[in-house]
Amino acid sequence: MRPLTEEETRALFEKLARYVGENLQLLVDRPDGAYCFRLHRDRVYYLSERILKLATSIPRENLVALGTCFGKFTKTQKFRLHVTALDYLAPYAKYKVWVKPGAEQSFLYGNHILKSGLGRITESTTQYQGVVVYSMADVPLGFGVAAKSTQECRKVDPMAIVVFHQADIGEYIRHEETLT
């Protein structure tokens, strides 16, 4: 377990900023105590100082996880967000997509969102913007990337993809062993 290096921090923040924009500031400076990012076995964990203090006394090889896992660094030093970060992305997300109840299941199985399943979308979403996906009951389901801007979405045919799938909460069952 160690603090992130300069490049790692940049890669992480760039990725997070795609979803939460300037709200990223709120994640780092929290009113309820100091929070920090730590790297452990290529995974990035977000945790409070108090947990950090306790975790430092556990031998590295025995430490499995701490706080919340945000994602991992690939072998090529790119950062990949995991669905476990959803709890922190969802409240701060700038751009959101709501899916219809019928298309919910399809998204939870790892499929892209088609125009026919699109319930609502934030105005002024640009193409390739990171979005958080919600069900119509406002339950966060995952996140992805907008394949079309809001304007284009209105015109395309029902079977066209509007949001590329990146992560969804179905992964808690499908990929339990690789989550952390």
């Binding site: 409070s48 947990i51 031998p59 025995n62 430490l63 996880a65 701490l66 706080g67 919340t68 339990e176």
Partner: peptide
């Protein structure tokens, strides 16, 4: 354990294997 804790939104846990 890790999967369940993340799914349930538990943030104050350190998981260890001793």
């Amino acid at each position: 354990v890790v999967g369940n804790l993340h799914r349930l939104g538990v943030t104050n846990v350190v998981v260890s294997r001793c």
